[in-house]
């Protein structure tokens, strides 16, 4: 479609439209509700504007678990990708098996196996650890391990695709200058692959922020679990409607901020590509949809 509709092409208008839609939806749902349900909108306001200790600690857990697990995943992904394309057959086999197993089983199964399976058999009981003065509870450790291993399998494929996307001539040129495979990977191929990998990696981290909620199964009190427990007991008991709207708002906050950061990273990595990168629209526009900007 041509840009004959200036109303929707201004970035602010688009996000305002989406917000209006969200509010409208909430109102429709509320109006369709039972007359006997007592709406308590203070819950939403208080949870978002004046989050209590529980929410803040849940937020911190979600963030820290997400970041650490994603980092583990990226590191495993780089090694896994290099393993998948290695010349030695046993290395290739090991990497392929890792990817096949962790992509082929549900994350929930992996979490419960790593925490409960290893725990009851006594293989590893996940005792609390004290690192740098902070006590890291056993189930949090298990959650990070499970999430990290799982993410590593997906990152392996993403990194591998990124490496394969790089012209093989790059590796040849590096080798012809006397670089070993490892050096060429580190200095020439992986830095270029990074640019290809960042968009899907951003997507993965966006998912990770939300996937930590699965850790409810091993009683990790992260953001979703905190709201779930507030619904099950305490002063805000039995108000899932308001509580989970508040939870949704918090998650939107996290994922939106990540989106902004990701846009910045992509921009920095794109330096040197010349015209294409410099003509990119600003962060906010790209975040809230700038389809109609193209072709102006």
């Amino acid at each position: 479609m041509t840009s004959a509709h200036p109303g929707l092409s201004r970035p602010g208008t688009r996000s305002a439209a989406r917000l209006t839609g969200f509010v409208l939806l909430a109102l429709v749902l509320a109006a369709c509700g039972r007359s006997s349900y007592q709406y308590n909108w203070n819950i939403v306001v208080d949870s978002v504007i004046r989050p209590d200790r529980l929410i803040l600690s849940g937020l911190w857990l979600t963030l820290s678990i997400s970041v650490i697990s994603q980092l583990i995943g990226v590191i495993l992904g780089v090694f896994g990708a290099i393993g998948r394309i290695a010349r030695l057959a046993p290395v290739r086999w090991l990497a392929s098996f890792y990817v096949w197993f962790f992509r082929g089983t549900p994350l929930l199964v992996q979490i419960t196996f790593i925490f409960f399976g290893l725990g009851v058999t006594g293989v590893y009981r996940w005792p609390d650890l004290v690192l740098l003065g902070i006590t890291v509870s056993g189930n949090v450790q298990a959650g990070i391990v499970a999430l990290g291993l799982n993410e590593g399998a997906y990152m392996t494929e993403i990194v591998r695709a990124g490496i394969l996307a790089i012209d093989p001539g790059q590796m040849e040129a590096a080798k012809s200058l006397g670089m070993t495979y490892r050096k060429a990977m580190r200095r020439i191929v992986l830095p270029q692959a990074a640019r290809v990998i960042v968009p899907p990696l951003g997507n993965e981290f966006n998912n990770m922020l939300k996937t930590t909620s699965l850790l409810v199964i091993i009683s990790v009190p992260e953001l979703y679990v905190t709201f779930s427990r507030k619904n099950a007991s305490g002063p805000t008991v039995f108000h899932p409607f308001e509580l989970f709207i508040a939870a949704a708002i918090w998650y939107l906050l996290l994922t939106t901020i990540w989106g902004l950061i990701q846009a910045q990273i992509e921009r920095r990595l794109a330096r040197g590509t010349g015209a294409a990168a410099d003509a990119q629209p600003g962060m906010i526009r790209r975040l809230f949809g700038a389809q109609r900007e193209v072709g102006r």
């Binding site: 925490f115 409960f116 725990g119 009851v120 996940w126 005792p127 056993g138 199964i217 091993i218 009683s219």
Partner: peptide
């Protein structure tokens, strides 16, 4: 979320 998991936490030493 499930009572049996709470019991499992005891038997796994958590």
């Amino acid at each position: 979320e499930k009572d049996t998991d709470a019991l499992l936490a005891l038997s796994s030493g958590q």
